[in-house]
Structure formats: C-alpha cells, structure tokens
Amino acid sequence: MDIFLQFDLPSILLGSLAALACGLLGNFLVLRKQALMGDAISHVVLPGIVLGFLFSHETGSWPMMIGAGAAAIFAVLLIELIRRVGNVEPGAAMGVVFTTMFAAGVVVLEQSGTAGVHLDVEHALYGNLESAIWLDAYTLSDLWNLEVLATLPESIKQLFVVNLLVIAFIMLFFKELKISSFDPLLSASLGFSPKWLGLSLIVMVAIAAVAAFSAVGSILVIAMFICPAATARLLTDNLKVQLFISGIASLSAGLFGYLLAAFGPGLLGYEISVSAAGMIAVVAGLQQVLAMLFAPQYGVVMRRRRQKVHANI
C-alpha cells in the first residue's frame, strides 16, 4: 500500500490534474475552432519557460509560469499582427509563429548550457510524470492528514491551484465564453468583447499548459486540450454536460493511462517500462476513437445503422 501511495498515487494525481486543467479549457478551444491554438501555445511557451528558468534557476517555479504566460500573449499578438497586417491566412500565421518561437526556445536552451542540467528539450517534449513521489505517505489515513498532505510534491500542489483557477474562470465567465464562442458579433454588441475574452482564454490555456507541461510534456498537453473535449462533443449537445463529460474523460485518461503504463507490460509478462505520459495521451485518443465510432447520436456506427433503417423504410 505504501508503495502505491508513495509512487503511484502522486503520478496518477499529477497526470489526472494536468489532464483536467487542459481538458476543461479545451472545450472552448474546440468550440471556437481554435483547437490548434492549444498546439501552438504548448510550443510557444518553451522560450518563456527557458527565460523564466534562466531568471530564477529553478524548475516548476512561478517565474517560469509568468514567462510562459508572457510568451503566450506575445505569440497571440504576433499571430494577430501577421494575420492582419501581412494579410496571411490564420493557419499559416500560427505556423510561422509557433515554429519560430519553439526554435528560439530550443536554441536558447542549448546555447545557455542549461540543457542537461535541469531542463532539456526531451524533458520538455515528454514530461516527467514518474518523478513525482510522496515519501511521507504510509497509510490511507494520510490522505486526510493535512500535515502529510502538505508534503505532497510541489508540482501537484501547483496543478491543484491551477485547476481551481481554471474552474473558477469557467464558472465566472461561463455565459460570456459561451456567447463569444457562438456569436462574436452579438457578444461584441452586448458589451462582452470577444477579443478580450479570447485573450483571457488563451492566457488560461498558457497557464494550464505550463503547469501540465512539466508533468506530461508539451506535445501531450495538446492531446489533453483536444481529445477529452472532442470526446465530450460527440456525446452531448449541452455545453454544461459537455464540460462535465470532458472532465470525466480527462480524469479517466489520467488514471487508466498511468495504470496501463505502470502495470500493463508486467501483466503481459514483459519486463519493460513505458512512458506514462504517452500512455495517458494514448488512452485519451482511444476514448475519442470509441466516441467517434459508438456515440449514441453522432457515432459513425450508429449513424450508419440509422441510415440503413431509414433506407429499409
């Protein structure tokens, strides 16, 4: 039991919380057809993180978070600028900005000699889920013991705070996010500026991306932004229910992804270890595949069946 509490539980918590923060925000990205903004943001935060790190010399710190937020805002403004002033198609503008900023991050990282010490590019891409350990936990009752809880790894606490922030953001601005996603013109005319709401959404996305990034790595962050929301989108037509389902899907991807990675190969008789972060994203993807095929209303299989019934009548 204590091994589970000390090594597995922290990783599960880390993975699930990271998935949850991203998965909830992802709903609005998917609805605004900005799913790839999640992709772009998770790349552009790299230079911000590197600069934040160079500034503070510690990983998982708030300066890194601030650097990432600043980098995200900078990227959004740059994309807007290139799109508007240069008359460049949005997808292309995004592509130019995020590849360049990521390249800058990589070069600065290698150049400054921080690579390999605390921060390296592979780490940035893969994350380091398994590093979370909670040595002070011995029994189940420790889960209710505030003193022991206080010894949880810093990254988990940080993600917990970020999740609270994300949930508060969505609760506070639910109505505004909804209207500005559905009908930006009406939203603007009623005084809810779609521009500012969009920008604050992106800032939240950046914060979630950075917090999740040290756990699951930058590319898996994208999976968490898109897959749970897309899964939920296929299962319901109610935005509140969709948010709820995406939350469940995120948590279950975090839980089952980790369990599969940690115990799957052993059960199959292999003595190998596989990336837990990768497995979480794979599970999120599989959940989406299931939804795409078997969702009661919008699944491909059910639709085919309905068409057949229709044709027979």
């Binding site: 909804k178 209207i179 009406l186 319901t236 037509d237 109610n238 935005l239 969709q242």
Partner: peptide, 16 residues
C-alpha cells in the same frame, strides 16, 4: 452545431 438549445440562444439576447 454549437452545443446550445433554442432557449439558450434566446437567453443570449438577455446577457446584456
């Protein structure tokens, strides 16, 4: 295709 019902959309008119 947005996840909203008819009354949701009408309610948006009241958001102001």
């Amino acid at each position: 295709d947005f996840p909203a019902t008819a009354i949701d959309v009408v309610l948006m008119g009241l958001y102001g």
